[in-house]
Design a protein around this nucleic acid. Structure first.
Length: 575
RNA sequence: UGGGGCGUCGUCAAGCGGUAAGACACGGGUCUUUGGAACCCGCAUUCGCAGGUUCGAAUCCUGCCGCCCCAGCCA
């Protein structure tokens, strides 16, 4: 019925095209793709979709995927970005092997192709100014007019183009244009500019060139030179495909790749446009491109998202031509799914409440065995210190609990995970504020490890940490960057996406009490704070012996949902 | 009649003339030393709308409607 491959990947239209091409032996049975970023910014989750697709198809069909930097505009590109992009692609788990390329590697060949175009009368040097070119181009509904320079002789065009290359003319004075059709309904075919003069040094070719090819000319030729079979790009290039094909048809090339367009990724509660992300960085809304709230690869890495989870997400969202917005909950689900299998469990108390166990001998302490990962016995166990005074989570105690609250309350017994059953005997409050400052409890020595020999059960199990052994750390709770699921759609009546930022996207907690084993956690490594969520030691702000933690994602919170419903119901009653 | 695309569950998404996969989300339950995980159940009589062809249509035809992209010497 529904075609699925062995890896259970759902069928999609691009895979179907590749499958058909393979069956027809279209490219000699080869699949060669490429990921072609412009090194003018940082990669984000939208690029991850493209990376996973391009490298994924290459792996699936025993082909290969090239990493190619589309560096044809030196005014925007920098080495810093190429380094960052390579790091991100590698971190995502992909390897381009020998196949690292730069469009700038082909500048000589592009130039030769351009001369070839002139020689066959398909290109001309145009002296119109940028404004004039725009005026001559016509509009969406009206045809354009031909440039007065369109019928220069081949010799004159060749001479002029060579002088452009030699640096005889200032920026903007002349361009090379393809001679196609000024009346075409597709504006890209109205004698598009293919070379422009830019006296700007290039991050790789230095000042060797002062003319640079445009995307439409360079991209199809780069693909062709590299023997790409399937050139995947986003929807907005659909209109460029006729031009892509025109160059490859008109020029003498050995390989004519097929351009296929797909819808780019959009995610709820965030934005994925480079221009808009820049604003967040520049206005200091976030700390940088790698702020853990950013949808950038570097941000997600710092936040603790596992590459395998991101890859899985990219495969699960599918590929189609419909413009869509994927629920970020799916990303979070994929992240939890991965982390549940791989993250060691530890105990940490974010908002501590002191508990004194009155019948536990003063000065006594012991170590209790705790499981590191219930999903994987190979993670083993560790010893956690226990003593008379411990911290528990403030939210794990309620003086006057509602039904369904299973945690600690006056007179109620709960289990301390991997330790003992305790019963709350007294609540100590600050005399002035009335705030609960301490709990008094008793423990049952027979329940060591967490089981009662008499078989009695408790409904709640809570985490804890021994006051004497805990260390304090800063923990950063990250949440969605925007409070609106569609910041772009919401923007209207003068309001922009900037007006829908989530004011609580970062909450900094100081003085959190963590179990001692965490003290030397390697930055970047993700652990689960039991019952709370997944956290990693921040790679920038952690110091040896003094880690700072980032919350990667919360655990699924069933109680939170019940509580929310509860509150709603009560509000309705009051109203 | 500028040109090019897209409309299947709240959100993604299969489906390619034989009677609507799956995932996330949501709701309910089992189990549980994480209110985690796991497991079970429920969740589109209908595919933008209207006609037509056919024994049979989400799939073919016609006509509408809605949304997106294109007028950089950006990519």
């Amino acid at each position: 019925m529904n075609k699925q491959d062995k890896n259970n990947r759902p069928s999609n239209f691009i895979r179907n095209i590749i499958l058909e091409d393979l069956k027809a032996n279209k490219h000699g049975g080869k699949v060669i793709t490429r990921f072609p970023p412009e090194p003018n910014g940082y990669l984000h989750i939208g690029h991850a979709k493209s990376i996973v697709m391009n490298f994924g198809f290459a792996q699936e069909f025993n082909g290969r995927c090239h990493l190619r930097f589309d560096d044809t505009n030196p005014t925007k590109e920098e080495q810093e970005y190429v380094d960052a992009i390579m790091e991100d692609v590698r971190w995502l788990g992909y390897d381009w092997g020998e196949h690292l390329y730069y469009a700038s590697d082909y500048f000589d060949r592009f130039y030769e192709y351009a001369e070839q175009l002139i020689k066959i009368g398909k290109a001309f040097v145009c002296d119109l100014s940028p404004e004039e070119i725009r005026a001559y181009r016509g509009t969406l509904t009206e045809p354009g007019r031909e440039s007065p320079y369109r019928n220069r002789s081949i010799d004159e065009n060749l001479d002029l183009f060579r002088r452009m290359k030699a640096g005889e003319f200032q920026d903007g004075k002349r361009v090379l244009r393809a001679k196609i059709d000024m009346a075409s309904g597709n504006l890209n075919m109205r004698d598009p500019v293919i070379y422009r003069i830019m006296h700007v040094p290039h991050h790789r070719t230095g000042d060797k060139w002062c003319i640079y090819p445009m995307y439409d000319f360079a991209h199809c030729l780069s693909d062709s030179i590299e023997g790409i079979t399937h050139s995947l790009c986003s929807l907005e290039f659909e209109d460029h495909r006729p031009l892509y094909d025109w160059f490859l048809d008109v020029l003498e090339v050995e390989c004519h790749p097929q351009q296929i367009e797909f819808a780019r990724l959009n995610l709820t509660y965030t934005i994925l446009s480079k221009r808009k992300l820049i604003r967040l960085v520049e206005e200091g809304v976030v700390s940088g491109w790698d702020d853990p709230r950013m949808p950038t690869i570097s941000g997600m890495r710092r936040r603790g998202l596992p590459p395998a989870g991101i890859r899985n997400f990219c495969e699960r969202i599918g590929v189609a031509k419909k413009e869509s917005v994927v629920d970020v909950a799916l990303l979070e689900h994929c992240v939890r799914e991965e982390l549940n299998k791989t993250a060691p469990r530890v105990m940490g108390v974010l908002n501590p409440l002191k508990v004194v166990i009155e019948n536990y001998p003063e000065g006594q302490e012991e170590e209790l065995e705790a499981v590191n990962n219930p999903e994987d016995p190979s993670y083993g166990t560790r010893m956690v210190p226990f003593s008379r005074e411990i911290f528990i989570e403030q939210t794990d105690f309620m003086e006057d609990p509602p039904k369904k609250f299973f945690r600690l309350a006056p007179g109620r017994e709960v289990r301390l995970r991997y330790a003992y059953f305790i019963t709350c005997t007294d609540v100590i409050k600050d005399e002035k504020t009335g705030k609960i400052v301490e709990l008094r409890c008793t423990y049952d020595p027979a329940t060591k490890g967490g089981n009662a020999p008499d078989g009695r059960k408790v409904k709640g199990t809570i985490h804890w940490v021994s006051t004497r052994h805990a260390f304090e750390a800063e923990v950063r709770l990250y949440d969605r960057l925007f409070e609106h699921p569609h910041p772009d759609r919401a923007a209207q009546d003068g309001r922009t996406y900037m007006d829908f930022l989530n004011p609580n996207s970062l909450k900094i907690l100081k003085g959190c009490k963590l179990e001692p084993s965490l003290k030397d956690l390697e930055p970047g490594k993700v652990v689960q704070f039991e019952r709370i969520g997944y956290f990693c030691a921040d790679s920038k702000d952690s110091r040896p012996g003094s880690p700072v933690f980032n919350r990667t994602v919360t655990l699924r919170d069933t109680w939170g949902k019940i509580e929310k419903r509860f509150r709603k119901k009560n509000n309705r009653k009051q109203a």
